[in-house]
C-alpha cells in the first residue's frame, strides 16, 4: 500500500453552494502533502471530511485501505486553522483532557506530555491558565496536543501562524521529524516558502475542484520555462547585449547581484542548450551568475489559479 489516505470522488454541497466537486486525491505514506488553494476553495471542507466532522454527499475516504470510520479518530491528529483552547482551564489539565478524548489513557497521556513539555522547555506552564499565556505559547501547547497520541495522519492547517521565525523553525523541524518517524502529514498553508521547504507532494484546489496534484518536483518540471538568470562582468556591455538579443529571447531582470554586472533573464528555445548560452557569455566576459529559474511554488500557484479563473 503506497498511499495512506485515498480520497475518491468527494462531493459536498451546502444548499446550492458546492464546496467540493468530485475531488480525488492520493496521499502517499510518509510524505508531507501540501494542500493548497485560494481562500474559500474548499480546503477546510475537505479537511473536515477527513476528520469526520462533516460527511460528504458522495464519494469515499480510505485510511490505510479501510473506509473511514469513527475508530480512525485516534489515528488522526488535527490542528485547525481556527484554533483555541479553554481560556480558564489550566494547561496541563487541558492537555490531559484533549489527549484522553483522543483515546489515550491518563497515565500514558501524562508520560507523553511530560516528554513534550520538557522537549519544548515549557514544563513550568503546567499549572498556568491559557489566558495567562501569549498566543505563541498557546500555539505550542496546541501543537503538542495535536501530535501527542502519535497518529498515523497529521493535518496541520496554517501551523506557523502566530509563531515567531525561531519557533516556526522549531515546529518545521518537528514536522519533518514526525514524517521521518513514519507519520503522514497534510499541510495546508498560504505561505509558499514553507511549501518549498517542507512539501514532497502538493495538490491545488480552486473553486471546489482539484486543478493540480502530484510530486512537487514533477510539477515544477511541468511548469519549467527554460529561462536562465545570467550575470556577467564585461567591458563591452552594449556589444554583449546585442549579441544576446540576436541569438536568444532576452528579458530584463530584477534580481540583485553586486550592481556592476550586466543582468538578464534569458529564455532558451527547445533546440538551444544552456551550454550555448554559457559559452557565449564566457567568451565575452566573466560569468558571475548563471542559474536556471526553477518555478517557485508561488509562481505555480498564481499561474494555475489564474489559468483556471
Amino acid at each position: 500500500m503506497n498511499s495512506l489516505l485515498e480520497i475518491k470522488n468527494l462531493v459536498k454541497n451546502y444548499g446550492n453552494y458546492t464546496a467540493l466537486n468530485n475531488v480525488s486525491l492520493q496521499i502517499p505514506k510518509g510524505s508531507v502533502f501540501g494542500l493548497l488553494g485560494p481562500n474559500g476553495a474548499g480546503k477546510t471542507t475537505l479537511i473536515r471530511i477527513i476528520n469526520q466532522i462533516t460527511m460528504p454527499d458522495s464519494g469515499a475516504v480510505f485510511l490505510d485501505g479501510e473506509p473511514l470510520s469513527p475508530k480512525h479518530i485516534a489515528d488522526i491528529g488535527y490542528l485547525p486553522e481556527e484554533r483555541g483552547l479553554y481560556k480558564s482551564m489550566k494547561v496541563g489539565e487541558q492537555a490531559l483532557y484533549l489527549a484522553q478524548l483522543k483515546g489515550l489513557s491518563k497515565e500514558d497521556a501524562k508520560k507523553r506530555l511530560k516528554y513534550w513539555f520538557e522537549k519544548f522547555d515549557i514544563a513550568s506552564w503546567w499549572d498556568k491558565k491559557i489566558e495567562e499565556l501569549s498566543k505563541g505559547m498557546a500555539q505550542k501547547v496546541q501543537f503538542i496536543v495535536t501530535v501527542l497520541h502519535q497518529p498515523k495522519l497529521l493535518i496541520f492547517d496554517e501551523p506557523f501562524s502566530g509563531f515567531d521565525p525561531i519557533n516556526a523553525q522549531l515546529i518545521a523541524k518537528e514536522i519533518l521529524q514526525l514524517r521521518d518517524e513514519g507519520a503522514t502529514i497534510i499541510f495546508s498553508t498560504h505561505r509558499m516558502e514553507s511549501v518549498e521547504e517542507l512539501c514532497d507532494d502538493i495538490a491545488l484546489i480552486h473553486k471546489s475542484n482539484k486543478i493540480l496534484d502530484g510530486k512537487l518536483i514533477d510539477i515544477k518540471r511541468k511548469f519549467r520555462t527554460n529561462t536562465y538568470q545570467i550575470g556577467v562582468n564585461t567591458k563591452n556591455p552594449n556589444e554583449v547585449t546585442n549579441l544576446l538579443k540576436s541569438n536568444f529571447q532576452v528579458f530584463p531582470a530584477d534580481f540583485k547581484l553586486f550592481g556592476d554586472e550586466l543582468i538578464f533573464n534569458v529564455k532558451l528555445t527547445n533546440n538551444q542548450s544552456s551550454n550555448e548560452l554559457l559559452s557565449l557569455l564566457s567568451n565575452h566576459g566573466e560569468v558571475k551568475h548563471f542559474v536556471e529559474m526553477i518555478p517557485r511554488a508561488n509562481d505555480i500557484f498564481i499561474e494555475a489559479v489564474s489559468k483556471n479563473n
Partner: peptide, 11 residues
Amino acid sequence: SRIIEIIVSSV
C-alpha cells in the same frame, strides 16, 4: 475560544 473544531475532531 475556537476550541470547538479541535473537540469535534475527537468526539
